[in-house]
């Protein structure tokens, strides 16, 4: 009895000692970030991140986003929604990144910790801290979509006109209701950001929601026939704080189960 137990303990110890030491560069860089062709239905994955300039842990989330962006290229679409306690401006953090859309959308889910985000879903139970994003994004990348999203934009004097076209590859049952969300986001905004116990004065904020063309509940759309197109047009005045060259439109379609079935984005400066 004693001998066999000692032997078991010895074997267990040897097994325990098997550990994986990663030496050198641990980053996987062989990405597949080629842009899908026009009107294709390749699945893009959306991350809706709740963040704020005073949030000390949010740069960790942004680091994750940058790595995912680097890996998946245009198939990964991050959106940074500045809302909640950490987004309230103060004397140290004077810039207000909040929007009506962002605040209303934030209050639908009422997150209690930051950074936190939802990957391809609009559900409270899908709110996940940044440690979970990578695996969830990878999982969603394997899914398919039957929708394609295209954009057109026109900049008139102080006016931005956007049209979003959603096309389905196959027939959609009438009872399937969809909601379309269309947002304007801006990259490369330089401003102060809390970072752990310190703060960074010239932090670069990317994917920041600047305007919601739709409300926080989205717009209902219907798609009954194969190849049917739904085109929705929006317009808004151009805010003098926005820099056109850094603006992009993001649109995503949500089904009745609050799952994001497709999303897309286009930079304004490169759109027609």
């Amino acid at each position: 009895m004693k001998t066999s137990l000692f032997f078991s303990i010895l074997v267990s110890s040897i097994l325990l000692l098997s550990c994986d030491i990663i030496e050198g560069d641990p980053y996987v860089r062989n990405n597949n970030n080629s842009d899908p062709v026009e009107l294709d239905t390749v699945k893009r994955v959306l991350l809706l991140e709740f963040t704020g300039q005073k949030c000390p842990n949010c740069p960790e989330g942004h680091e994750q986003i940058q790595q995912l962006k680097n890996f998946y290229g245009s198939r990964f679409i991050p959106v940074a929604i500045h809302a909640g306690y950490y987004a309230i401006p103060s004397s140290t953090y004077p810039i207000d990144y909040r929007t009506t859309f962002g605040t209303n959308f934030h209050n639908l889910f009422n997150p209690t910790s930051y950074p936190i985000g939802m990957v391809d879903a609009l559900k409270h139970e899908n709110l996940q801290t940044h440690g979970f994003w990578s695996e969830k994004v990878a999982e969603q990348m394997n899914r398919t979509s039957h929708l394609a999203i295209n954009f057109e934009s026109q900049i008139a004097v102080n006016q931005l006109n956007i049209s979003v076209e959603v096309r389905s590859r196959h027939a959609v049952l009438p009872e399937e209701s969809y909601r379309l969300y269309t947002l304007l986001i801006e990259d490369s905004i330089v401003g102060r950001q809390a970072n752990g116990a310190t703060s960074i004065a010239d932090y670069v904020h990317d994917h920041v929601v600047r305007h919601g063309f739709t409300s926080h509940l989205g717009d209902s759309i219907s798609l009954f026939n194969p190849q049917q197109r739904r085109k929705v047009s929006y317009q808004t005045s151009i805010n003098e704080q926005w820099r056109i060259q850094h603006l992009s439109v993001v649109a995503f379609v949500v089904n009745s189960n609050d799952e994001v079935v497709q999303s897309g984005t286009k930079k304004l400066s490169t759109s027609n």
Binding site: L16, C19, D20, P26, V28, N70, A138
Partner: peptide, 21 residues
């Protein structure tokens, strides 16, 4: 004491140690 944990590496962007001692 010796304590080891195993968790599969499903992260597409990092090479993660699956066994940590």
């Amino acid at each position: 004491s010796l304590v080891s944990k195993f968790q599969p590496d499903k992260n597409p962007t990092l090479i993660l140690p699956e066994n940590v001692l």
